[in-house]
Design a binder for these strands. Structure first.
Length: 194
DNA sequence: ATCTCGATTGGCT
DNA sequence: GCCAATCGAGATG
């Protein structure tokens, strides 16, 4: 029923993919059931021409997946947290989209683990790139995972045909390439970060 | 081996 | 709004 988006969905300009991922579903398989979250906030990282992108300095062990096939998961660690991205565009184009916030749609009881109890409000459970990975148990073991495969622990699928307005703002938490409007949100959605 | 820094978060002023 | 926690990647020696 939740059909994964094909890998060619990601093989397009990253700013477009970042906007089109809004409203899509992230499906997470847990042993106890299925969690579904709607993507409500993303950021585009444009690779070689983007000083804020990890791949701006070139190919490293950490960033190698960005140079490969679109539709894979780029996961990396920042302090105590993991952050999830989807690789976009073609081979040797090291671009990606960061998943920054989800609106829970189904299976919210599956993610109310001890680490998340402090987030008493439902709107504060998945409203940040580190928080959503913690809640969904996403970590470095998912580095390079195929986001277009229904057998993966999690993948991206179409959501409902809702109408919403996309708002573009500056990206959060970076010190280089601050100006471009590469953060995209579903305008007015209550589950956004910040 | 050592140093610097960060696509964050939570707590405090 | 400010700041510390905390730790691996990447750069440098």
């Amino acid at each position: 029923m939740h059909q994964p988006l094909p890998c060619y969905f990601y093989d397009r300009p990253t700013t477009l993919v970042a906007q089109e991922l809004l409203g899509k579903f992230l499906i997470r398989h847990f042993a106890d059931g299925l969690f579904v979250g709607k993507i409500v906030e993303t950021e585009a990282y444009l690779g070689t021409n983007d000083a804020a992108a990890h791949s701006a300095v070139g190919r490293t062990k950490r960033t190698q997946i960005l140079f490969g096939e679109p539709g894979r998961a780029y996961v990396y660690q920042l302090r105590n947290y993991y952050l999830l991205n989807a690789v976009t565009e073609g081979i040797d184009t090291p671009t990606c989209v960061l998943f920054r916030a989800l609106e829970p749609m189904q299976g919210i009881d599956l993610i109310c683990k001890p680490d998340n109890l402090r987030a008493t409000k439902e709107t504060h459970l998945l409203n940040g790139p580190g928080k959503l990975c913690r809640a969904l148990e996403i970590n470095l073991s998912h580095y390079g995972m195929d986001l277009s495969c229904a057998d993966s622990p999690f993948y991206i699928a179409n959501g409902p045909q809702d109408h919403f307005e996309i708002e573009a703002t500056t990206r959060i938490g970076i010190s280089k390439a601050v100006e471009p409007l590469l953060r995209f949100t579903i305008k007015g959605n209550p589950y956004l970060s910040r």
